[in-house]
Amino acid sequence: MAMDAHEIERLIKEALPDARVEIRDLAGDGDHYAATVVSAAFKGKTRVQQHQLVYSALKGNMGGVLHALALTTSTPEN
């Protein structure tokens, strides 16, 4: 059971409504994606905390159904 890009984007936007999300399928197997997420919610947070926000948005799929998500996060300004 894999995840598709729209599902990932939907989940992230559900948790981070202002987020701009870009998803690239790295391997075409629904298991390896790269995602760039830009959101004001990341402001003042460390990279680890920013990524944890995205992982919690994915409601436990990360590391399970979704094997790999190469994540890049940033706030709207930079």
Partner: peptide
Amino acid sequence: NWPTIPQLYVKGEFVG
């Protein structure tokens, strides 16, 4: 509270 491996720790602190 990090869902994947690998995980790097420096001086007891999770780096990423």
